[in-house]
């Protein structure tokens, strides 16, 4: 379905769409898409609001091998509606993770890789997007009873909203310099809290707080990788082979509460403060 010569010559993952990203990361010839776009399972909510739908609703689910390991990849298309999750796309991701967990209960060691380029809930499907994201959270935790879930935020949309929580639930998180990771989008924070608190137009400021490099340096991501297909695939493969971490980041409440207790919250915060506070005891 894809122009293979373009794929072979491209090293950047960020420049690829969701389907090509999944194809690029899986071992050659092993990519098998589920609920492919020709099945046209599209959003039942967008067209009635006058919004053009996409045939795959912006989420690609593919099974295959990654360096020989059985995986299911769920990739979000950041270019479609800002990578927002609606009912169908959300159910595709949740359902795939649920089936991966079921595989493991039946003795098949399916792992999951999530390619996250998303603003979070699709507001045109609001509560169904939110419910789907809760299902995704549930399924990520369930699957990690058996196998790791690797999240990848490559860029260029970044990972926000309820899906940033999904990123926080993963066994491991891989980021590039192009990645941004945060709960709230800059414009919403500025609107809620004011310009002085958060200037959404000050790009260097936003990157210094939520960019991939800062997240890695603060221990909120596990790998900081160049935007290169081969290198990203290599890191995912290593992490999958490591198996489950002793304690994933979202299981370290005591450690984070201890760190936060040491912070002077009076002055406004600087990126270096976060690095100092969180570095040291790297998880």
């Amino acid at each position: 379905m894809t122009d293979l010569t373009t794929l072979a010559n491209s090293c950047s993952l960020v420049e690829l769409g969701a389907r090509q990203r999944a194809q690029a990361l899986l071992d050659t010839g092993t990519f098998r898409e589920l609920l492919d776009p020709f099945q046209r399972v599209m959003s039942p909510w967008l067209a009635r609001q006058g919004v053009v739908p996409q045939a795959d609703d912006g989420v690609v689910i593919a099974k295959g091998l990654l360096n020989g390991l059985p995986v299911v990849i769920a990739a979000i298309e950041g270019a479609f509606q800002g990578g927002s999750l609606g009912e169908v796309g959300g159910a595709k991701m949740a359902g795939a993770l649920e089936l991966a967990a079921e595989d493991n209960r039946n003795g098949v060691p399916t792992r999951a890789v999530l390619l996250l380029e998303t603003g979070g809930v699709r507001l045109q499907e609001a509560n169904l997007g939110l419910a789907a994201i809760a299902d995704i959270h549930a399924a990520i935790v369930d699957l990690q009873q058996y196998q790791p879930v690797v999240g990848v935020v490559a860029g260029s949309v970044g990972c926000f909203g309820g899906m940033s929580i999904a990123a926080g639930l993963c066994s491991y998180l891989v980021v590039t310099r192009e990645a941004r990771l945060g709960l709230n989008g800059p414009q919403v924070i500025e609107q809620e809290a004011g310009l002085e608190e958060y200037d959404s137009r000050d790009r260097p400021f936003i990157w210094s707080l939520t960019g991939g490099e800062q997240r890695f340096a603060s221990g909120l991501a596990d790998r900081y990788v160049a935007d290169d297909v081969v290198q990203i695939q290599q890191h995912i493969s290593e992490l999958l082979q490591q198996g489950l971490p002793a304690r994933r980041r979202s299981q370290q409440a005591a450690l984070f509460l201890h760190r936060l207790a040491q912070l002077d919250t009076e002055p406004q915060i600087e990126p270096a403060t976060v690095r100092d506070l969180y570095r040291g005891e790297r998880s």
Partner: peptide, 25 residues
Amino acid sequence: SQAYGRREEALGIHQALAGAADSYA
């Protein structure tokens, strides 16, 4: 709502909420 602020984003509020969701799940 969740808390909207600079300190929150910088210190990884997404990770704190993941902690809560993880424990409930």
